[in-house]
Amino acid sequence: MKPPRDRAIMSPHDFRKTGVKIAYGFMVIGVCLISLSMLYPFVNTFLNSLKSTEEFFAFPPPFFPSRWLWQNYKDSLDYLDIFLYFKNTLYIYAGNALVSLTFMGLAAYSLAHLKVPAKKWISLYFMSTLMIPAASYLIPNFLNLKDLGLLNTFWAFWLPAGANAFYLLILINFFEGIHKEMLESARIDGASEFRCVLSIAVPLSVPIIVTLLLLGFSTVWNDFYWSSLVLKTEKLPIGAAIYTMIIYPGSTINWNVRFAILTMTLVPPAVLFLFFQKYIIGGLSLGAVKG
């Protein structure tokens, strides 16, 4: 026999009442409808990318293309050299990940496990930036990068990527969970603090590092506005490239070509999501636990 299912708000007893049954039925239908509305745009985007222009404006428009026009993908390359922009995006992302994890990791380890003077004040120095709305330093940030001569360089992304109090907080919390005894015994065996970080803290924090890497990826893949201000055309990441060349208000590029580009842009995050679902959904609750 199966063990009785863990109850939720409604118990098996409630389901004997007709009213509850009907309400439950409506609820299930509601969830199904919402799920459909979540999936429809994905399917629609993909199918639209294979339609001909005539089919796009036919009435009523067919749901499926009559012929799968892969040609649209080829045509889209005339508008946007998507591989160049994919490469730029990955380049920015790799630098971001390297800089931010290295420096934030060391700092988090230091705050969690090392002797530091005025630790409370240093933590405050980092964490109080969480309270300042990002919008209020958008403009000076741009001027600051200009003064530093970093405009139109990838350094304008790599270095500021390390200034993220939220990720730092997550790392500190995680490192604090590592037992002091483990580090202590490594030190007695003569390991330097660098060794402790590399051989103990990092291997123990793989899940959190993966989560941060994924969060960082979606930040870079998502960004279009900031990078369109900082970088020139040939260095743009994918989002900004589409923004400046394909989907600006009033764009006249054919819809099927636009959808081909959108579909290609959607593939990398979708694949990552399917493979790393657990980490991504785990990362969500990080945001909530904080409060």
Partner: peptide
């Protein structure tokens, strides 16, 4: 020494890319 060594780069990054823009703004 170790604690400070690990912290200083991050302190500098926060200073240059967050605090200076905030104050300058």
């Amino acid at each position: 020494s170790w604690g400070l060594l690990f912290l200083i780069p991050e302190i500098v990054i926060f200073l240059v890319f967050l605090w200076i823009p905030i104050v300058k703004g």
